[in-house]
Design a protein around this nucleic acid. Structure first.
Lengths: 321, 321
DNA sequence: GTGAAAGCGCTAACAA
DNA sequence: TTGTTAGCGCTTTCAC
């Protein structure tokens, strides 16, 4: 059996209450008793049971984090920051990779509620999950509009799209296409797309719904069909990389014949593909802001501050444009 | 207040036990009672409290996952697979990014024990964390030797190093250097390094202890100091990418003048940098095997099967060699 | 400065 | 087929 508080109490010759007091630094304890208890804890290698504690306190210090997939550089980096910040505040992260699937996300949200998480951070793509309406459950959405009552933290997608497309135009592109990826089923990229459509005369947006290999195939098809294309605004850096790969295969010179701009600008991308011109999202700021907002909601049980927070993005000009 | 089992019982006009039975599909219940209870659950929007359940059952279905950082493509991908598999088995992941720091990892392991996790998966780099000795706590280490009693799952690092270096030799490299990164403080890369040192006449290994920007600087310095270098075996793909970047800056032609091989071969790398020749680790297999082993330990409370599992790696030849 | 007792929400003997 | 009761390990009034 695991050693429990009662065992420590017996070993120290005091009551459970006293041990609890030592553990939580609460109330008056004599130095001597404190020492005895601490020795017993040490001696028995005792770890308090946080499940029991959570049950009593009605607070778990767990935060649920729902992302499409932590293997995507953007969400991986975001998850890292979020976890780090939460950890420094005494919160733990339950990681959920929804794959962008409605059913999965729904199952995860139910699971999180049953586990009594203190709050949920959602960066996934599905609307209409009514679990999120669970009374007084603090939720912050990242870059998505989940429901009218759920606050949103994100970066300026319209501005990002505008910066990207305007940059291509400035560089002399005359036939710019826009490529959207499989993960981007809803909200945020719509603004990037809107910016593109607002700035370009005959917008052509491709929505690629497939995975990796298919993406390369699709892009090859697109470039072969539209040889006049001289600019691509990809909705994320992975897409952009696929464009570069296809261009290499087809002997299209980048940036001379074709300019490519991506989106996200994660550290991973900047390390693996430093040539890529891209729109850099303020990932750490998004993490900080969303966690802060969630903590506010947890502590005050209501939303303070703005319903929506929009953080600035940045154009990183490199060699692909 | 949250609605609890008792509320459901009252609403359905039955005892708490009966509700519990319906919830767990245990024992005999008449269809009628079952229906009444289910209606009440629906009506009240009741979610069982898994904290209470865990306390009673002495089982949380939580698995702790300790990685250096989930933002690294290798660990990001590994975490995804691990979480997916665990989720399909009814387990939840508590994510811990240790940054490879001893103190952090120690704090995380204590936290996990206090939260009564059913097991821990460790892919971090610190030895001598005595928390891992906690009685009968199932632990599986990924690619690291934590302690003699903790089983290890990993890929064949020596073979990986050998494949990489032999490939460079086969391609005609005469002056091959090896670059090790900041995250790689211990075990697994040592075998890669050993293979390198076994195969090369005058091995020169650089251990870069700094972060991103410094790495590029260091590599530039190395290449300027050793212009005869015609082959680099980097200990991971990010390092390799930094080498390529420096080569570009210095106008060194890859692969003509310099050949570069990386390590890991994640999907992210293969998307962002498909030109890179690398050693591909069987990430999904590592995830499957380590979770399976952990589940065995949880269910049988002892280790079955081999203490160490070594999975095969694969040489992916691309354009940088 | 310390202890006794009740209870957090749930489950599982054991009875009925 | 259903209910009564005790208890998982902890914290916290309240009493001493």
């Amino acid at each position: 059996m695991k050693v429990k508080l009662e065992d420590v109490a017996k070993a120290a010759g005091v009551s459970p209450t006293t041990v609890s007091r030592v553990l939580n630094n609460r109330g008056y304890i004599s130095e001597l008793t404190k020492k005895k208890v601490e020795d017993a804890i040490e001696e028995l290698d005792y770890y308090p049971n946080d499940v029991a504690r959570s049950l009593f306190k009605k607070r778990t210090n767990f935060i649920g984090l729902i992302v499409p997939t932590v293997s995507n550089p953007f969400f991986g980096e975001l998850s890292l920051y979020i976890e780090n910040i939460c950890s420094s505040l005494g919160y733990k992260i339950i990681l959920c990779n929804s794959s962008g699937q409605f059913e999965k996300e729904k199952a995860y949200s139910t699971m999180l509620i049953r586990h009594q998480v203190d709050g949920i951070l959602v960066c996934s793509y599905n609307r209409g999950i009514d679990t999120y309406k669970y009374p007084k459950l603090p939720i912050v959405a990242i870059d998505h509009y989940l429901a009218p009552t759920i606050p949103v933290v994100g970066s300026d997608n319209y501005m990002g799209g505008k910066l990207a497309v305007q940059h291509l135009i400035d560089r002399g592109c005359l036939s710019i296409i826009h490529i959207n990826g499989p993960l981007e089923l809803e909200t945020p990229t719509q603004y990037r797309r809107k910016a593109y459509e607002d700035l370009v005369d005959n917008p052509v947006t491709y929505e690629l719904q497939f995975d990796e290999e298919d993406i390369v195939l699709s892009i090859r098809k697109i470039l072969l069909e539209r040889p006049e294309t001289d600019g691509i605004f990809a909705s994320d850096d992975l897409m952009a990389a696929a464009c570069l790969q296809v261009a290499r295969e087809l002997n299209i010179q980048v940036p001379e014949q074709l300019k490519v701009i991506g989106y996200d600008g994660t550290k991973t991308t900047r390390s693996l593909l430093p040539q890529l011109t891209t729109i850099k999202q303020p990932i750490e700021e998004i993490a900080k802001t969303s966690v802060k907002k969630l903590m506010d909601m947890i502590d005050n049980s209501e939303l303070s501050g703005p319903y929506e927070t929009v953080l600035p993005v940045q154009l990183l000009i490199n060699e692909t444009t």
